[in-house]
Amino acid sequence: MALLDVQDLSIDIGGIKPLDSIGFAVDKGETLGIVGESGSGKSLTALSIMGLLPLIGGRVERGSIRFDGMELTRLPEPDYRRLRGRRIAFITQNPMTSLDPVIRVGEQIDQVARLHLGLSGSAARRHSIEIMERLRIPEAATTYHNYPHQLSGGMKQRIVIAMALAANPDLIIADEPTTALDVTIQAQIVQILGELVREKGVALILITHDMGVVAQACDRVVVLYAGRVAESNTVSAIFASPRHPYTQALIGCIPRNAMERGSLVGIPGLVPSVARYPAGCRFHPRCTRSESLCEREVPVLERLASGAEIACHVADKHEAAHA
């Protein structure tokens, strides 16, 4: 059984259903990529696992989230709270706004060790500085006393990562940890996260809309489109033979550096908003191969013998051809 196993997850935010039957699994020492354009439901997937949907007025409507044998969807809040930051850590999408602007960054890292490891003031500080040094933050002892606005975006993201590492979590969910940063910093952050997986054996969920990052850092990948899984497979297989027309389009237009973030110019049209999801396959209005069936029937997610999963009426599902 994998460390985290999400099955048939559907959520509800005030009557809106932005996620429909999402499923995937990730194990220790493994990196799972979740890709999809802006609005496809990546962040909401992360919030669901963190148990933080109530903060935005949402809830899990159906499905299960199993973590290390526990059913998280039924976990009481006090137990959930002890899990957050301790065993499941979260790296938010925007490092510019993710730190409390009026508290020194070092103290913000301390909080985690104080809360979950029971370390006291000076021990927590030593612990934090040690992690900062491990993340190659220059002059960690000085930076410790800085306020967020005194640091660059890349440094802030490292602080957020340091908070995520402070209690030695088993699972880290990184929600587009690099989109707000420039290219050289992006590569460094991805590298740092990769080292964590290899050296500490943590399970990493790396959310991104950048297929380049997926190719570089992930073992498996789940492609989300408009709140549903389009395709999921190992990274090598998905790059070798993408089956879903959406995945094919995504790979056909791996973003170059100069591209506007969040946009994938290779695919005409936009992800529909939650209120206007089309019937049938949600991708059909943008799909070059759509048939009349696609407009009527929701394609079910089929699991192939190799472990690949695909939800499409028109895709080629013959394994032998690719074996």
Partner: peptide, 21 residues
């Protein structure tokens, strides 16, 4: 705000987040 979400993600009790941050 984003940073409050992250405070929740760190596992701080909701009451403490409200009063201290």
């Amino acid at each position: 705000k984003d940073f409050v979400l992250l405070l929740h993600a760190k596992g701080l009790p909701a009451r403490r987040i409200q009063l201290r941050h």
